[in-house]
Write a protein that binds this DNA or RNA. Structure first.
Lengths: 257, 257
DNA sequence: ACAATAGTGTCTATGAGACATTATCTC
DNA sequence: GAGATAATGTCTCATAGACACTATTGT
């Protein structure tokens, strides 16, 4: 791409109107866990949340919006999203994926803005130690369903809805569930996470299927210590449960067989 | 989005450098069929092709590139792609899907261009009656593998590779195979199309699996005439084969069960 | 008869799905 | 022992996968 030196002087960049900006907007998902009872051990209640920020100036002043910001000419859009994520939540190193572009004319009263939407999956623990720098009060986590009922700035309702659909789909077809889980987890935890994102997902014999080697073989594996002993946890139950971890195996899905 | 009337006079759009353009580039895939022998009936040889155009001016003059063009401020990026597709190939009404953005600084010597990539799936028959308006010689179909070995303009090698990966994945997980098939088709035709796009796909008992109702139930259905009689075709074989059509059912895939 | 593709019969091993039962540990 | 979650036993039916075999029709 070293052709710019050949640029003919007749070439004009500004022959047509050009966009006024290329923002990246980020739908940050996290799953919050709340204890169900103080006394007894049990699986916590999980809820899928979205991070929103309150707009301080025109346009949509006072309304809630997705975090994001404008791309610079020295970075790719993906780098923009990473930078904004870092600035917004001081989180680094999380799952961040591009999923769509929003370009309807008139979607931003400031001008011709072509917005690039990402979703990020963040573990609640990573979010807790975020700096409250940008005023604690103008950033909040909102349950997804509630966010969709709010009247968000710009076309952010659409963006959140699209992101949610994408994450739901990926939750069942890829191993992104791992982003919401500790490295070692129990089968019930995994099941809970999946159900929190995709409530329709119901598998009576979940342990059976995911355990039954040979078929789903290799998505997850038992955690063993240096002596080959099974490692278990009783965080969420009286009886200790086997811990598992994801392998890097991703099964190849097909509707044809 | 009727807030523009509230724009404060202090607001300046041009505080930062803005992009010089937002092009849409389209990877147009088609499957060409060539008879294997003039005499006998047999399944044609199929090949996955990509449409390329030769660049007429700076930059990358004389190199081959993807069709595409710049977005206007009165249309969404998707509409840009539709329009360019129509202008380029005079095809309307085909499968067109957005799949990624390309924004690496320096990817376009003309300036800061954030490109939006689409892929289109076109039936060979639709492509045949395209106008040779823009000089027949500067547009051509190239087998995908060959296109990837060429040195295309801009970062179009990357775009083609990404598009191919996406289409391969969707070929197995959605029913886009229908875009390359006539409305009524035989099981072998379907199998050929899948294998043309995804050569690794090998299913010995393909007919069995796709036919064996109850499991894959409802992706495709037998074509019957008004009397309930099976409709068959012997286009590609001595013995007539049952014709099928896709239903609008899309199975829900999951790695968990 | 041969070529070429379409489609079935049959057998086996494995998986899904449902439900009851047993295991382990805390309070 | 009650309560809670983890995990296995067992039975049935559906499916995958392999492979041999039969079917149909143009040349």
């Amino acid at each position: 791409m070293d052709e710019s030196k050949d640029r003919p002087s007749s070439y004009s960049v500004a022959a047509f109107r050009t966009p006024d900006g290329a923002p990246a907007d980020i739908v940050i998902f996290t799953i919050t866990s709340t204890e169900r009872r103080a006394v007894k051990k049990s699986l916590p209640l999980m809820e899928l949340q979205v991070l929103l920020i309150e707009r301080k100036g025109w346009p949509f002043e006072g309304q809630w919006a997705l975090p994001g910001g404008f791309s610079k000419d020295t970075e790719s859009i993906y780098e923009t999203a990473r930078r904004e994520l870092q600035e917004e939540t001081s989180i680094d190193d999380v799952h961040l994926a591009y999923f769509n572009v929003y370009s309807e004319p008139g979607r931003d009263p400031r001008g011709w803005m072509i917005s690039h939407a990402f979703f990020a999956l963040v573990n609640e623990r990573q979010l807790l130690n975020r700096k409250a720098a940008d005023d604690a009060s103008d950033v909040k986590l909102v349950p997804v369903e509630e966010a969709l009922r709010m009247r968000l700035a710009f076309d952010h309702n659409t963006i959140v809805a699209d992101a949610l659909e994408r994450v739901r789909h990926q939750m069942l077809t890829t191993t992104i569930a791992k982003e919401f889980l500790p490295e070692k987890f129990t089968i019930s935890e995994l099941y809970q996470v999946i159900r929190t994102v995709v409530p329709e997902f119901e598998e009576s014999n979940f342990i059976r299927k995911i355990t039954a080697t040979q078929s789903r073989n290799g998505i997850i594996e038992e955690v063993r210590d240096e002596h080959g002993q099974s490692v278990t946890s009783n965080r969420y139950s009286q009886r200790a449960a086997q811990l598992y971890r994801f392998t890097d195996y991703q099964p190849r899905l097909s509707i044809y067989g």
